[in-house]
């Protein structure tokens, strides 16, 4: 066990994956000599060489498009897009090709690749550097979408994503890169994609979140316990696609109440899908309408006002109390 932050844990996973399998290569802008603008790929260029840690021209569509070609040829590319706010350039390659090759060739051609990108707000970044648009990819049949919330699960989920036979979008909440440290086992460990985790057991209300929003959600849960004597269960989704309906529904059947929390915009967001699945499988267990604490349906404001956009413990607490007193 060694204590490390999420940036270091992701770096560790990348090094482990490359050491274990020579088909694993990295590509992207600034990933090589510079070690990435967030230092996530630091040391990999020196360790594995320019043939496997490839500094590319600045062109997102080409980074993903060529990664698709490499995956088809038999490599396991891990492509970095420098910020999630720039991955619209390559969206077409993911939607039209990465997500479809297996299906349209009836399994003959597959695209085992990972797109990594830092996502989310909270670090006073400039315009176009704070987006959380995982719902776009969740709405794209054929992709998997994973968002870690801690150093240990970031490392384990990334190893799983790289080993997965299908294309995976791996979003890294950049506000968590250096937010806290956690013990990470020395030996490689994986976590199955598509499994949520109950990170706090409770019986009165279910709070469902993922990524950077998990921390304020847990804070709110503690406050509910301390101030209201309410026992909140907290679920960390980890995988947005496949979404772990069973874990969500099992919890809601027990508590009868649910609040979903995420940074991305509300309409047609992940919270809407979670609410729909709760309705489908556990409507009659609900004691109150499901509430959503999410980013609003506006572009994330410039950093002077971003804190009003992002979910925080107070907003979650208020929503939970309204749900509990419905």
């Amino acid at each position: 066990m060694a204590e490390m932050n999420m940036a270091k844990a992701i770096n560790k996973a990348l090094g482990e994956a490359m050491a274990a399998d020579e088909r694993v290569i990295m590509l992207g802008a600034d990933v090589g000599v510079n070690g990435g603008v967030f230092r996530i790929t630091e040391g990999l260029y020196a360790r594995f060489g320019e043939g496997r840690v490839i500094d590319t021209p600045l062109a997102e569509s080409a980074i993903i498009g060529t990664a698709i070609g490499m995956a088809i040829y038999g490599l396991r590319p891990v492509a970095e897009i420098q910020f999630a706010g720039f991955d619209y350039y390559n969206y077409h390659q993911l939607e039209s090709h990465a997500a479809r090759f297996r299906n349209r060739t009836r399994g003959r051609i597959t695209v085992p690749m990972v797109m990594r990108a830092p996502c989310g707000g909270g670090i006073r970044a400039l315009e176009h550097h704070s987006e959380s648009r995982e719902a776009i990819y969740a709405h794209t049949p054929g992709l998997k979408v994973v968002i870690p919330s801690s150093p240990r699960n970031a490392r384990a989920l990334l190893l799983s994503a790289i080993q997965d036979p299908d294309p995976v979008i791996y979003y890294e909440p950049k506000s968590l890169y250096r937010a806290f440290k956690e013990d990470v086992p020395d030996q490689p460990e994986t976590l199955p994609l598509g499994q949520a985790r109950v990170v706090r057991s409770g019986s009165d209300i279910t709070l469902i979140s993922y990524g950077a929003s998990l921390r304020p959600t847990l804070e709110a849960a503690e406050q509910l316990q301390e101030e209201d004597g309410v026992s909140a269960e907290v679920i960390d989704l980890l995988s947005i696609v496949p979404l772990d309906t069973v874990t969500i529904v099992t919890s809601v059947k027990k508590t009868g109440r649910a609040v979903v929390v995420h940074e991305g915009p509300r309409s047609c967001g992940i919270g809407a899908e979670v609410a729909a699945r709760i309705n489908e499988d556990s409507l009659l267990y609900l004691e109150a309408p499901i509430k959503r604490i999410t980013g609003y349906d506006v572009p994330i404001p410039y950093f002077s006002k971003e804190k009003y956009f992002l979910p925080d413990a107070d907003k979650i607490l208020q929503a939970a109390r309204q749900t509990l007193s419905f």
Binding site: I25, R52, M70, A71, Y73, P77, H97
Partner: peptide, 13 residues
């Protein structure tokens, strides 16, 4: 771009 990626992979291999 897929062709280019396949070509890059051939070179790597």
């Amino acid at each position: 771009l897929h062709a280019t990626g396949i070509g890059m992979a051939m070179k790597i291999a």
